[in-house]
């Protein structure tokens, strides 16, 4: 296993090795027969409980920020979930399913926390907002395409999220730090998974190489948006609660560059899309994702599941 990039033990160096850091209480662990999480892993239910009981309350800014990260992860989970039962090998059904589950877990944590500012649950936020109210960047809603396109998207996402969460473990907002501390460990595996496939597809057959290059070219226009600062991130970075996206770019470029170099691939030379997802401007794809995701919940408003 040659994982490019270093600093995989970010959680150790930032003192959040104990991922329960920042979240007091143990949650209502007997509330559901199907909630079995070993050890003291941070669960979305714990965060929801913290929020309900007032132990954790995000500021309006932090809630907006958590909403952004939650939406990113949720939309990606929805995309990746489609691969389950359709992957090129059974091992990839398992791997992509696992990554989707990790992302969904992060989404649930971030959304549960964000909802604390507006008296909303994760499901209120996921199922009862419209397109322009979603704050995900456009990369996450891009269609799966073939396996190479999905890998290209995963490659960008996992290297971006790793750098983000690694730094976010040091957030002065204890709940953001705790969510990031759990997420960074999982995203590290996502990095490994995508980098391995970049190498395999680029160095496999002529066809796979052509498809890999095509996949990267399709996804690369959406890279820029990931690293755009705005008023919210500036304020939060200033306060030590969040990370200015632009500060992640150098490490992202260097580490993805190392993998691409090993794969003998160029960084795609394509024009950047303007983005705007953080302000509710989305591509045409998001509407379909939401239509499918929300249909049942909206058919029975107020119902419990």
């Amino acid at each position: 296993m040659s994982t490019p990039g270093t600093n995989t033990d970010a959680t150790e160096t930032t003192g959040h090795g104990d991922i329960s850091t920042g979240v007091a209480g143990s949650g209502d662990s007997n509330a559901s027969a199907t909630r079995i999480t070993p050890g003291n892993a941070l669960r979305p239910e714990d965060i929801a409980l913290e929020v309900r009981t007032g132990l954790a309350e995000p500021t309006e800014d932090v809630a907006e920020y958590a909403l952004r990260l939650g939406d990113d992860a949720l939309i990606l989970a929805q995309r990746l979930g489609h691969w389950i039962s359709r992957a090129p090998e059974l091992e990839e059904d398992v791997a992509l399913g696992n990554i989707a589950l990790d992302q969904l877990g992060h989404a649930r944590s971030f959304l549960s926390y964000a909802g604390g500012a507006w008296d909303k649950t994760e499901d209120d936020l996921a199922y009862f907002r419209r397109e322009h109210e979603f704050r995900s960047v456009q990369l996450f809603e891009q269609p799966n395409g073939d396996f190479a396109v999905t890998i290209a998207r995963q490659f960008i996402v996992s290297y971006y999220q790793f750098e983000l969460y690694r730094r976010l473990t040091e957030s002065k907002d204890a709940t953001l730090a705790a969510i990031a501390a759990k997420a960074v460990k999982e995203v590290d595996y996502h990095r490994d998974h995508s980098a391995q496939w970049i190498l395999r597809l680029a160095g496999g057959t002529e066809e796979s190489r052509t498809r890999m290059i095509h996949g990267l070219r399709l996804m690369w226009p959406y890279v820029n948006e990931l690293f755009q600062d705005d008023d919210l991130t500036n304020r939060l970075a200033e306060a030590g609660a969040a990370v200015a996206p632009s500060t992640l770019r150098e490490d992202f470029d260097r580490l993805t560059g190392d993998v691409l170099k090993e794969a003998e691939l160029e960084v795609p030379d394509v024009p950047a899309a303007p983005g705007g997802g953080r302000f509710g401007k989305h591509s045409e794809h998001l509407g379909y994702i939401l239509a499918e995701m929300q249909v049942l919940a909206r058919e029975y408003p107020g119902a419990k599941w």
Partner: peptide, 19 residues
């Protein structure tokens, strides 16, 4: 039903099951 699961918790459980 993964894409249409009516709550995020149910979606997570269903995904884990199919996996």
């Amino acid at each position: 039903w993964i894409s249409r699961a009516p709550s995020l918790k149910r979606k997570a459980i269903l995904m884990a099951k199919v996996q």
